[in-house]
């Protein structure tokens, strides 16, 4: 497995720390793992920590947009934190930041 995800839930916030390369090989399984937690726990805030993601393509962007739709449909919020410059470039290029705000760190999300 090229990608790893650690999950941490604090009250109604689910933090997903992803590491590795976000392409079509891993998006299906990652989607299932995230959605399973979104469905079974009462979560209204999803934080995707991409600090350790070294590559993302449009399959990875699709994963993020899909979670945005799912969380928004439940009146929840979603944030991306810690994207490296090369990953951030692709996020900005796709315009995903207009839907999912980007933050430097998990602390920055909390303090906002």
């Amino acid at each position: 497995m090229q990608v790893k995800a650690d999950f941490k839930q604090v009250r109604n916030t689910l933090v997903v720390r992803i590491s590795g390369e976000l392409d079509m090989l891993v998006t299906d399984q990652l989607r299932q793992e995230i959605d399973y937690r979104l469905d079974s726990n009462s979560i209204n805030t999803l934080v995707l920590n991409l600090e350790k993601v070294s590559f993302i393509d449009s399959s990875g962007l699709g994963l993020i947009i899909g979670r945005y739709k799912k969380v928004s449909a439940q009146q929840g919020r979603i944030y991306i934190v810690g994207a490296s410059p090369s990953v951030e470039k692709i996020l900005l290029f796709s315009g995903i930041n207009k839907l999912v705000p980007l933050y430097r760190s998990e602390k920055d999300v909390v303090s906002n």
Partner: peptide, 20 residues
């Protein structure tokens, strides 16, 4: 390195398209 990252991205897109 930025050029290489862009090249890797486009290859990833095209090969994924062939598979999917």
């Amino acid at each position: 390195l930025e050029d290489i990252e862009e090249i890797k991205l486009v290859v990833s897109e095209a090969v994924s398209n062939s598979i999917i």
